[in-house]
Design a protein around this nucleic acid. Structure first.
Ligand code: MN
Ligand code: MN
Ligand code: MN
Ligand code: MN
Lengths: 223, 223
DNA sequence: AATAAAATTTAGGCTAGACTAAATTTTACA
DNA sequence: TGTAAAATTTAGTCTAGCCTAAATTTTATT
């Protein structure tokens, strides 16, 4: 590890991890957008992370970065903190799932390993956060996610909601209202090949609901 | 307020508040010791805080600083966070009262006002933290503490423990063991004028205990 | 009141992590 | 396949907050 993994570095690593998840390397621009920082500043940091001892990222000019094993461990540590915190805030302080993100984004950098362990214990060692995202294990292994986008289902298919994208609080509130939350079962009543709309029967809901791809691409299910 | 009250500034203000509590102004050296920072660095920060708009401290060369009204509000905000956090960590995550301090010292700077409000609500709007220290109110007023040092009691006096100094974890563990914790009643069975020792009968304890001034000066009671 | 010690300030310097503007490289597409 | 747009890097700055060493002021003690 470099001498110190600052809060700023933790945020870089976390976002690089998430960008790496969906395909290859994380580009300077993508990182800059997610961190709300000028691209030139990102370049500087990437060079620093790449020449740290040991290196936290693999960086080739103009080709973005990938995490090294060390970088990934550091990223998973932060992600575990974040997701445990979200779970903790929802269950013990009554936060709703669209409110926790900002709070966890700051707390994730300052809690101790003891705090992390106490939360995990108090919550019964959960494997998913309130949005259904997988929580890395205490020894920093990310479980495999086998869910697929709700948008990929077709008429008569049945599935269980596992995870919803937590990017957009408004979308989260909407999903909460229509009952599309993790662990709920759904049945696809019909599919429109024109607009991709899905008509769904949602467990526990009186009437069916029709969702467009803007929504169904953000919800992930296990068949 | 200055443009931003950073974490560093928050810590300065908090410690200046505590130094101001017991007598006049906070000296450069005292602040430096408490913050573990070189005195020269403290001078620089004090000058900055004094010339902020509005000023957060009143500073005269070589004479230390006092908080302005604005500085005091900012300090009380941090202290409220700290003491609510200590209470919260003890009651919801099972921390012992000698473990909470370090954790709260970091968290106090990053929690939101919403988090503060939710903690206060969940805890039933407590007025004291686990060590018995008074918690500033939501509108940032510090309640008046009327307790006096246990060391000032004499034979046959009766009192209720209100507060113990939280500086020393080892002392806290000792006090916990002998049952000297907030809200417990005590009776002074005898006083030694030679060494200042007090023999105490502690509510809920089988046998009496003898405490020296090193301990009794750190425990505060209401008669 | 003189002087030694302690406290404090000044001066100069450093690092982390951001920024803008300009230069360069890559990519897209005509 | 050349050129324009987009992405990225370089170069030069800036601020916050710390440091050490040296100078100065205050205080304590004779
Ligand atoms: Mn963060
Ligand atoms: Mn999440
Ligand atoms: Mn602090
Ligand atoms: Mn305390």
């Amino acid at each position: 590890m470099p001498d110190t993994i600052t809060q700023s570095i933790q945020d870089y690593l976390k976002h690089i991890y998430e960008l790496n998840e969906h395909g290859g390397s994380a580009s300077t621009n993508d990182i800059a957008i997610r961190l709300n920082i000028a691209p030139a500043s990102v370049t500087g940091m990437l060079q620093k992370l790449a020449s740290a001892t040991p290196p936290l990222v693999i960086y080739k000019k103009h080709q973005g970065v990938t995490l090294t094993k060390n970088g990934e461990k550091a990223a998973l540590e932060v992600i575990r903190h974040h997701r445990l915190l979200e779970t903790f805030l929802v269950t013990t302080l009554g936060y709703s799932w669209d409110e926790v993100h900002r709070e966890a984004d700051k707390l994730e950098h300052v809690i101790s390993e003891d705090f992390e362990a106490r939360m995990a214990e108090a919550l019964g060692h959960p494997t998913r956060d309130p949005h259904g995202e997988l929580i890395p294990t205490a020894d920093l292994v990310m479980p495999v996610d086998e869910s697929c986008p709700l948008a990929s289902l077709r008429t008569d298919e049945t599935a269980t909601v596992r995870r919803v994208s937590d990017d957009d609080p408004a979308l989260l509130r909407h999903l909460r209202e229509i009952g599309v939350v993790p662990e709920v079962k759904i049945v696809v009543k019909s599919y429109s090949e024109f607009d991709g709309n899905l008509t769904l029967q949602v467990e526990g809901q009186k009437s069916n609901v029709v969702l467009g791809t803007a929504v169904t691409s953000q919800v992930f299910v296990d068949k």
